[in-house]
Nucleic acid binder design. Structure first.
Lengths: 195, 195
DNA sequence: GTTTTTTCTGAACGCACGTTCAGATACTGT
DNA sequence: ACAGTATCTGAACGTGCGTTCAGAAAAAAC
């Protein structure tokens, strides 16, 4: 009934995040209790409050970290001048990044309604930044005459919706390699927006 | 403390369904209580159990009815022989039907994990029937040489994901008419799958 | 070896949950 | 007018919720 042998915040903290991520993705934020999360890590519920002020922050931190990772990873990608090459880079990057983090992606899309208004603003703001990158590419391509879409904003949302769809069925080790999936989707995206 | 004036199951039953639909869509199944649903209809929680055996059935019935409506509405659509015309009909029908029922659609996609295994099977089975219709169209078009997709199953999922995306942003009375939205998306779908 | 800091337990708080049911009132059919 | 049925209330059941906190043990600092 006190500090346990081998306990360290550097270890417990991340383990709590992982447990919350896994359980939120599997059962949904509202259906998961603090006691379940604690149990997954081998703690009593009260110990969680050494690491988070409340349950809501646990969710928000997962989303914010995920979107910051997304933006950072994207910023580290090469950026060709050619719109077609840029779009291909975006499509392939998006599929790779998202299929690699199915739980984070799932939560970031499904649990928005469980955020407080200000946390909601923060998360959708970060996502907006990412979507703006794609819209810039499309606009650049339209200006260059290589893409033809009547509305770049709608085309942006349509392309992202299509690419996000991969996460609903793709599993590593399945019939198709990730490289093959990338190519199939890139092909459809390219045709959909090309002049 | 008894039957109230003007109470009738023909009226109360549908009102309970509507209240559950609205609240589940807004806050999520797990976050909505039977007392909230009852309150929305002007009842005490116990009265709901004249209409549903439990909370889970309330959710399942909403999903099943929605998908049955979808299949029935689709079956009532004209079915041209030409694959291109069939695909256009499917795309436009899908957008019209789904934008007309945003709450039902939202629930049918987001609350699958709150279904018991057998209810889950029933719902995904109905959805599979609908998706098979699209895959049949694509396969027919590929055989006729008018479509070119390396994998009809993946193309089916990609097209549906893209079309479903409309529901994330479209609102009646917005900048674009539904007809215009249909045309924009149909254009992207057509280009994405055409040979 | 002693003190200080970190980490956790276990119990407790008030509250809300899904569900059941006896009893009361409104409606319906005769 | 009366009997039978449909509909709802209000209270209750046990359970689990998010969160707080005093105190105890382990680790770290000195």
């Amino acid at each position: 009934m006190a500090r346990t042998a081998g306990s360290h915040s550097d270890i417990t903290g991340p383990r709590i995040q992982e447990a919350a991520l896994k359980l939120f993705a599997r059962h949904g934020f509202a259906a998961v209790s603090m006691r379940q999360i604690a149990g997954e890590v081998g703690l009593q519920a009260g110990a969680l409050y050494n690491y988070t002020p409340d349950k809501q922050s646990l969710l928000f931190d997962l989303m914010r970290d995920h979107l910051n990772d997304l933006l950072a990873a994207r910023a580290a990608q090469p950026m060709p001048d050619d719109p077609m090459a840029r779009l291909e880079g975006f499509a392939r990057f998006h599929i790779r990044f998202h299929t690699d983090r199915p739980d984070e992606v799932f939560i970031a899309y499904m649990e928005l309604r469980n955020l407080t208004p200000e946390n909601f603003e923060a998360v959708t703001g970060l996502r907006g930044k990412y979507e703006d990158e794609l819209e810039d590419i499309l606009r650049q391509g339209v200006d260059a005459g290589v893409f033809a879409v009547p509305d770049t904003k709608i085309a942006t949302l349509a392309v992202i919706a299509m690419l996000n769809g991969v996460n609903t069925w793709y599993r590593p080790g399945g019939r198709l390699s990730l490289e093959a999936v990338e190519t199939i989707y890139w092909d459809m995206v390219r045709k959909a927006v090309t002049a």
